[in-house]
């Protein structure tokens, strides 16, 4: 138990802002996962690996002298086709099967991607420099790296873009129709195969964006994908399936909660505290559901 944050309340501002910026980035990854989960009923264990792969694209641009921030444009384009290819080779075989098969399949993809990245890019931890500088608030008491602000801004733009695309475009409407009832959509002439491939591609593209942002805000390594998978999974669970605004709120909420857990409980408990919160939320949900059922009786 550490009371430093109460002795220096300005740290609360720091913690809140850090948490929100971190949460928005995680929410973007979770957003792709929720989309794909909702439409195809597939829990993608390889989500984190797609993120890291997207990050390496930005990193290689950086190595060749291009500013890594342009990765947020290039990386999703490449990742879209990688996602589309993954669907056409593997995912289409498991899309109508039960959840367990798809978890196994994506787990396999995750291991394969890790090893391939390790083989191709090497096992060194790498970073891409954005040189974006720092924003100071409250007379230098609160510092926010501009790279994190940039990451949050880009994440919001992409999230809004995808929401509008889903509402307005033909493909977006087809995706939503397939999510509601794949069979009915098929009868009405929607090519659900194409919809699925596009959904998987869009998810991979979002991972590409997030990966590029991680390359300039954190570090990249072939084996650090799993925490991103776990975190996005938790965000989706807490938000509830099909609740896209909820993903943003739960992403930021978890981010802030995690920062405060770090200050108050200690760094070693910050990840554990988030898991504990997840358990509590699930128990509470179940409790609420069972009450509802009693009314029905």
């Amino acid at each position: 138990m550490d009371l430093l944050i109460f002795e220096a309340p300005i740290l609360m501002v720091q913690a809140t802002l850090d948490g929100i910026l971190l949460g928005i980035l995680f929410a973007l990854i979770a957003y792709g996962m929720a989309l794909q989960w909702g439409v195809m009923n597939i829990i993608n264990i390889a989500q984190g690996e797609l993120v890291i792969l997207g990050g390496y694209i930005a990193y290689f641009m950086y190595l060749y002298g291009i500013h890594p921030a342009y990765g947020v444009i290039i990386s999703p384009i490449i990742m879209y086709f990688i996602g589309w290819g993954l669907y056409k080779t593997i995912i289409y075989r498991v899309v109508d099967r039960d959840l367990f098969i798809s978890i196994l399949a994506t787990f396999g993809i995750s291991i394969l991607t890790q090893q391939l990245m390790n083989f191709i890019f090497g096992s060194d931890v790498v970073v891409a420099q954005s040189n974006f500088g720092t924003t100071f608030l409250f007379n230098y008491m609160v510092t926010l790296p501009n790279s994190k602000i940039f990451a949050a801004g880009v994440s919001i733009i992409f999230a809004i873009f995808v929401i509008i695309y889903m509402k307005k475009s033909k493909l977006g409407r087809a995706i939503r129709a397939t999510a509601q009832n794949a069979r009915a959509a098929k009868i009405l002439g929607v090519d659900t195969e194409k919809v699925y491939a596009a959904t998987f591609g869009i998810n991979a593209a979002l991972c590409g964006v997030a990966g590029s942002l991680i390359a300039i805000t954190f570090t990249l390594h072939p084996y650090v994908g799993l925490p991103y998978t776990v975190r996005s999974f938790m965000i989706v669970i807490i938000a509830g399936l099909g609740n896209l605004p909820g993903v943003a709120i739960s992403g930021m909420g978890l981010g802030v909660f995690e920062e405060f857990a770090d200050y108050i409980l200690g760094t070693e408990f910050r990840v554990g505290a988030v898991f504990l919160l997840l358990v509590l939320i699930l128990v509470y949900r179940r409790f609420k559901l069972s009450r509802k059922r009693e009314y029905l009786k």
């Binding site: 740290l11 850090d18 925490p227 760094t267 070693e268």
Partner: peptide, 21 residues
């Protein structure tokens, strides 16, 4: 005396504490 979980990629909280102390 912060113990960083293995999956952690972010040390911002630790460093904010360092700045304050």
């Amino acid at each position: 005396d912060d113990k960083l979980p293995k999956e952690l990629n972010d040390m911002a909280a630790t460093l904010a504490k360092v700045k304050a102390t």
